[in-house]
């Protein structure tokens, strides 16, 4: 079992969590506080460049220089271990640390850029960041404390068919560091189990991409949504109620586009989408709107919560609320 820390952690902000599913961040903080993980969020930390990087807009040198700056921000407050909420941040930061440690010429170039920018104190030395021992996905930090998670479960979420979607950029990029399976990934399934919920385990398409494909979602939408649709169909074939995620980009692809894909395919999927930290927070009894952040979801989560024995103080369906607001705006 690899070393996984529970303190001195920089919780690395994600551009898509920020503006799409901020409830992933508040849920992560809520769960970290409950299970005793010591962490810090830093306003100086920049975006990893992820979407721009895989759209091929960013060059590798700019990406690793920004990573060197973020590594410095992490170390500066004594939170040298990074935990990401997004799988692409995870992959990009690991690759950046590898290049900075192993490629002397690139490292010197990066330090030259930092010097020219008046940031001499941010210079990177080989080994400052160990990609295997300092960079993690939040799901790994949670997995390491799963026994602690089990002690705080208050809401019974059994009775639903739950499946997992393991993000490609966690499982398949730096796969030597991946825990709980690469070709048959089970990290999320194990975390659900810590909440008392057994998932359906393996299903056809379990390890297939969400279909976002970076540029594909925007410039090749038919192909992108076809891949997502196939996976949704595989989940429907198993009567899945809830799909658990570990990456905001995957969650967007499924949650935002599920109604449109259903319309195209002439089927209703009725699958709820939650990040694993949101799921654990819910199981711990967190408020759906003040912590879990279900008000930013496209597929309303209220019908799921209505089925629980535990009463939640629910607003009307988000979809209804939103349509009301649109009418108000029109007036």
């Amino acid at each position: 079992m690899k070393f996984i820390p529970d303190k001195e952690i920089l919780l690395f902000k994600s551009c898509l969590v920020n503006v799409e599913y901020p409830g992933v961040e508040s849920s992560t903080c809520y769960v970290f506080d409950k299970i005793g993980v010591e962490y810090h969020v830093d306003e100086r930390q920049s975006c990893c460049t992820g979407l721009g990087h895989y759209y091929d807009l960013f060059d590798q040198l700019s990406t690793i220089t920004l990573a060197a700056r973020n590594f410095n921000v992490a170390a500066d407050t004594g939170h040298k271990n990074i935990a990401t909420m997004c799988a692409t941040c995870y992959a990009i930061l690991k690759k950046s640390a590898k290049i900075l440690n192993q490629n002397e010429e690139a490292r010197e170039e990066v330090n030259g850029i930092l010097d020219d920018s008046g940031l001499e104190d941010m210079e990177y030395s080989s080994g400052d960041m160990d990609p295997a021992r300092n960079i993690f996905h939040v799901a790994e930090i949670l997995f390491n404390k799963r026994e602690e998670i089990s002690k705080h479960i208050k809401v019974d979420l059994t009775g639903f068919k739950v499946a997992s979607h393991h993000a490609c950029h966690y499982c398949k990029v730096h796969y030597k560091d991946t825990i709980e399976g690469i070709r048959d990934p089970n990290l999320i399934d194990e975390l659900a189990s810590a909440c008392g919920v057994e998932t359906i385990g393996w299903y056809d398409h379990k390890r297939v991409t969400c279909g976002a494909g970076f540029r594909q979602r925007y410039t090749n939408k038919e192909a992108s949504l076809a891949v997502t649709g196939e996976k949704l169909q595989a989940l429907k074939d198993k009567d899945v109620d809830i799909l658990l995620h570990m990456c905001p980009n995957c969650q967007m692809q499924f949650d935002r586009y599920q109604p449109l894909i259903g319309e195209k395919l002439g089927t209703e999927f009725n699958i709820f989408h939650l990040n694993i930290a949101q799921f654990i927070a819910l199981a711990m009894g967190a408020d759906p709107y003040k912590i879990v952040g279900i008000q930013t979801h496209t597929v309303p989560v209220e019908p799921l919560l209505n089925k629980l024995k535990q009463p939640f103080n629910l607003k009307e369906d988000q979809s209804k609320r939103n349509s009301l607001k649109i009418n108000e705006n029109r007036d």
């Binding site: 390890r207 279909g211 594909q216």
Partner: peptide, 13 residues
């Protein structure tokens, strides 16, 4: 070459 999804499934297998 612009149709790759950058999902790295190829890498993992």
């Amino acid at each position: 070459i612009w149709n790759c999804f950058s999902c790295y499934t190829c890498n993992s297998v």
